[in-house]
Every structure is written in C-alpha cells, then in structure tokens.
C-alpha cells in the first residue's frame, strides 16, 4: 500500500505507508558552507548585515541571498562573503568600545603589499553589523589597528568584523537594474488587502446577524 493524500500529486509519488526506517545522518557538507550577506537598503547608505546563506560557491550564495534578503524589502546592492573569510573580534558589553579591549597581536599571515580590508561595526548587541569603511593593511591585525585609528572613536562598538575586499562578492554597477521590483507584485503587500471595506459592507447588510 502506498500513501494516499488529499493532494493527488503526493499520492502519485507512491510513497510507502506506515513507519519508515530512520534515514542515515546527512554527510557533513550536505548543506554546504555558509556565506554572510550585507545589503544596501537605499542608494548611498552603508551596507548592513542581513544574515547567512548556505551555498556551494559565492555566485550561488549571491543568488540565494538575493532571493532571501531582497525578495520582500527594498535593496540597491548586495555583498556576500564566505563566513570563514571574516575575522571576528571578541564581543564587549553594550555601551563599551571593543577597540579599547583589543590587544595588539602578531599577525599570523602578512601580505607583501598592502591590500584593502572592509570593516564592519556592531553598535549594539542584537542589532546588525554595519559597514564602517575600508582600510589598507598587510594583515587582519594591522587592518584592525588601522580601523581603530580611522573609525574607532565613533561611540560604542561592541564587535568588529574584518574581511579582505577581494573576498567580498558584489554585483556590478551596470547590473543595478536587477534590484528593481516590478510594480505589479502588490499582492505581496499588506496594503493591497482592503478588508475593512468588505467587513463594513457586510455588517451594514446583515445588521441582525452581526449583533449576536
């Protein structure tokens, strides 16, 4: 006997009925590695962290991020970076500045030429990391020192993320029109549903039933 469903498409799958033997644990990278996504809500504003996605490579991560994080909200640009490429400082308490707490560490790896690093600040726990700016350095540690000089005195900063600019995957400027949403998707907006008109009309017409 196979499983019968109210949905004929499920019935046609001919799935076995009754309790099934347990599945084996999924292999370690079955769901791929993770990428962190930052979006720009409005032209000219700082890129802000929106969340992670799982993907096999950065191009796919970008596509997934576009679906996940720009599908329903305004977006004018997106950056995606592999999680393992992001260096994370310790977290301090709200109101404190993490740059004061960081001890200078010897870089484990240093590039011959300075290269660009992107710096992201978390201003308050529970909020999202925001792009503070870009610095030139030969290591993550030096980038952090440069960031402290450049943007470290701007109020409380509870955590910093540092990532090499070359590790940030972005959309090309000329592809900006990918962020335009076609206007006839109004059915996804709450304002498209004028429920009150119908309810009021119904109540007018059925004064007796509505009172009970």
């Amino acid at each position: 006997m196979s499983l019968t469903s109210l949905d004929p498409r499920v019935t046609r799958l001919n799935l076995p009925e009754g309790e099934q033997p347990p599945v084996e644990a999924k292999p370690v990278l079955d769901q791929f590695e993770t990428y962190e996504t930052f979006h720009q809500k409005k032209e000219g504003t700082a890129y802000t962290y929106v969340g992670p996605v799982h993907a096999p490579n950065e191009e796919v991560a970008f596509l997934f991020s576009k679906e996940q994080y720009s599908r329903r909200a305004a977006c004018t640009g997106m950056w995606v970076a592999r999680t393992s490429h992001i260096m994370v400082t310790p977290y301090v308490g709200d109101g404190e500045n993490v740059y004061d707490a960081i001890r200078t560490e010897e870089p484990t790896e240093r590039s011959e030429q300075p290269e660009a690093y992107e710096i992201f600040h978390l201003k308050k726990r529970g909020k999202a990391h925001t792009h503070a700016g870009r610095v030139e350095a030969t290591s993550y540690q030096e980038a952090l020192q440069e960031a402290k000089k450049a943007f470290g005195d701007k109020g409380p900063i509870v955590n910093v993320w540092v990532v090499k600019s070359k590790h940030v995957f972005r959309n090309n400027e000329e592809d900006k029109d990918m962020w335009l949403t076609i206007p006839d998707k109004k059915y996804r907006d709450a304002v498209a549903y004028k429920v009150m008109d119908k309810i009021t009309k119904y109540k007018e017409e059925n004064k007796t039933t509505a009172v009970q």
Binding site: L29, F32, T34, G51, P52, N57, T83, S84, A128
Partner: peptide, 20 residues
Amino acid sequence: GAWVRRALLNPKSKYVKPLA
C-alpha cells in the same frame, strides 16, 4: 535533491558556523 547537492559540492569547502 541529494544528487544535486553532491554534484555542486566543492571538495575544498570547510564548514564554519554562521557568525550571527
């Protein structure tokens, strides 16, 4: 979907848990 995920998997991938 398992075969699709297997085909796409980059053998050099290393798992790191998401940051936040």
